[in-house]
Simulated scan of single mutants.
Amino acid sequence: MADRKSFLLRLDPAVHDALAHWAADELRSTNAQIDYLLREALRQAGRLPAGAVGPRPRGRPKADS
């Protein structure tokens, strides 16, 4: 998997709670929800880089047989 950058994000507690609830509704982690929303905003604005690696597929990885 490609390396990921990590950084500190300060959020208003009410915004964090709303994001966490939204993420739970869509069966994502809060981090994955933020990543999804940022990618969607970039895509809609025409600013998502062509080489941007998408998120990992949801669910468990397939077992090697």
Score class of each variant (00 low, 15 high):
64 D>P: 07
33 Q>T: 10
36 Y>H: 12
14 A>P: 04
53 V>A: 11
39 R>H: 02
34 I>H: 00
31 N>Y: 04
9 L>R: 04
1 M>I: 04
26 E>I: 05
38 L>S: 01
17 D>P: 01
54 G>A: 09
45 A>M: 10
46 G>M: 11
5 K>F: 04
47 R>I: 08
5 K>H: 09
19 L>M: 09
55 P>Y: 04
55 P>D: 10
24 A>N: 06
59 G>W: 09
1 M>G: 05
36 Y>R: 11
33 Q>D: 05
38 L>C: 06
49 P>Q: 05
64 D>N: 13
43 R>Q: 13
41 A>K: 05
16 H>L: 11
40 E>L: 12
47 R>P: 07
35 D>H: 10
5 K>N: 11
37 L>A: 09
40 E>D: 03
1 M>S: 07
39 R>G: 03
26 E>G: 07
61 P>K: 10
1 M>L: 07
16 H>T: 01
43 R>E: 13
65 S>N: 06
48 L>H: 00
25 D>P: 06
15 V>I: 08
59 G>P: 12
48 L>Q: 01
48 L>A: 02
22 W>T: 07
24 A>R: 04
23 A>W: 06
61 P>D: 14
41 A>S: 02
10 R>G: 00
44 Q>P: 00
12 D>V: 05
3 D>L: 12
64 D>Y: 12
6 S>E: 10
15 V>W: 10
36 Y>P: 00
64 D>A: 15
35 D>T: 13
59 G>E: 15
5 K>W: 03
3 D>H: 08
8 L>V: 15
26 E>M: 06
52 A>L: 03
52 A>R: 09
55 P>H: 12
41 A>Y: 11
23 A>F: 10
28 R>Q: 11
42 L>D: 04
8 L>P: 02
1 M>P: 02
27 L>R: 05
58 R>Y: 15
60 R>Y: 14
60 R>D: 15
60 R>S: 14
53 V>M: 09
46 G>K: 07
54 G>V: 09
13 P>A: 12
57 P>V: 07
58 R>W: 15
9 L>Y: 01
16 H>S: 09
42 L>A: 08
56 R>M: 04
46 G>A: 09
61 P>Y: 07
37 L>K: 07
1 M>V: 07
25 D>R: 14
21 H>K: 15
65 S>K: 09
51 G>C: 07
44 Q>G: 02
33 Q>S: 14
12 D>T: 05
20 A>M: 11
34 I>S: 01
9 L>K: 03
59 G>K: 01
42 L>F: 08
52 A>I: 03
29 S>F: 08
45 A>K: 02
10 R>P: 00
25 D>S: 13
65 S>E: 01
37 L>D: 00
11 L>W: 04
46 G>D: 11
12 D>F: 08
52 A>C: 04
2 A>N: 09
63 A>I: 09
43 R>V: 13
29 S>M: 08
45 A>C: 06
56 R>D: 01
5 K>S: 13
23 A>V: 01
34 I>A: 03
60 R>F: 15
31 N>W: 02
35 D>A: 15
43 R>S: 11
45 A>R: 05
63 A>V: 09
48 L>N: 00
17 D>F: 04
2 A>F: 05
48 L>F: 00
35 D>K: 14
55 P>F: 06
39 R>W: 01
1 M>W: 00
27 L>Y: 06
49 P>Y: 03
42 L>P: 00
63 A>D: 08
